[in-house]
Amino acid sequence: MVHYIGVILDESRYEQIKGTPIEEKVQSIFGGALKMLVVEVPEDKSEQILKAFDRARIDSRGFIEDVPVAFRRAVFEEIVKNKSLDIIDKVLERLPEIQELAKKEDEYIPPPEIE
């Protein structure tokens, strides 16, 4: 069974994929209020992800959620670097580095500056 990783695109992220073949794969959700790229993850690889991060889970939509921010950032970086959504192997190669970054996230995530 295939699972998914959703990568939310804010303006800055959207700019980075604009004009690339990835742009046409952008999905618009919630009435156009949110843009997202969806990466397909084969079951054996989603199991690797669930094993690597103890809070990670598959939600009712079949998406892999509750993964560290560092993991999501790595997914997006690989999409930009490879101009492809077929990047899950490249992300998994970076698992040790991502796990190290994720440890720091247990203590601190910088809050956004909003009014």
Partner: peptide, 29 residues
């Protein structure tokens, strides 16, 4: 398009303000 608490948590953790159709801005604040 299903609501997912964990999807929203991921968005929040990344510092993305959820669109108001999903979460009221005052709740996010």
């Amino acid at each position: 398009q299903k609501f997912s608490g964990s999807f929203l948590r991921g968005m929040v953790a990344e510092g993305v303000m959820p669109p108001k159709v999903v979460m009221r801005p005052e709740v996010y604040k």
